[in-house]
Amino acid sequence: MRRIFELIGPPLLVLVIILGLWSLAVRLLGIPAFVLPSPEQVFETAIIESDRLMSGFRNTLVASTVGLLAATVVGVLGAIILSTSRVLERALYPWAVVLQTVPVVALAPLFVLWVGPGFVSVVLVAFIIALFPILANTLMGLVSTDPALIDLLRMQGAGRAAIFRKIRLPNSLPYFFTGMRISAGLAVIGTIVGEMVVGRGGEKAGLGYYVVFSATQLKTDFVFATIIVSTGLGIAFFLAMVGLSSLVMGRWHESELRPST
């Protein structure tokens, strides 16, 4: 209990101070609400719009999760395939890098054309944005094994499969989770961006849709409420990854859990 407080206490305190300053600044400087609503106003709007925010949260959560899962499966399988052969890696990895630099948002209209509007397109945006960190980090983990260990196992007659199972795969775990931590945030961002440009409206609308929706209607407080919920989702994803990695890797790699970006 005490540990939990030590963990979340300081950022919580910072949050309270910042909210206070924010509220004070809005009052004292007389900043109009449509430029910068006070935190109270944002909170009030969040309550009023809670139905839309909740369903937006749910929809974005689902799309982000599916996008991240797809990126995880494809990223890990891709990394395994690339790790099996230098030739494959040399031929394909540059394309993975290129894929990362493609402005995915600009591709979104094409996704609509190819796979239809809404969910699938949004997931595709999230998937592509989230893919690379997982692929690159996992690949790095699979190939950056200690050559001496590989020699050692070979000497005892171990085949590729055994070396993969006993050395490469476990060695890649911390790298994989580093990738996951980056990708978890990116999946949420990708989903929201996707929803902004090709997302579903109505019941299936995600948070990204409501960002545009509220901005179109000049409702700055609603925009803020949406951004806060989105940020909350991003943090939840990140923390889920931290939790998952310490669950899976347990005690052995605690030092590796420090985020590196």
Binding site: L7, W22, L36, I227, I228, F238, V242, T261
Partner: peptide, 24 residues
């Protein structure tokens, strides 16, 4: 472990500051 999370919280006030600056 807590650092990135607390940094994320900073985004909002930062955004607010930017808006105020832009408005001025």
């Amino acid at each position: 472990m807590t650092r990135p999370a607390s940094l994320m919280w900073l985004q909002l006030p930062l955004l607010a500051t930017l808006i105020v600056i832009a408005a001025c």
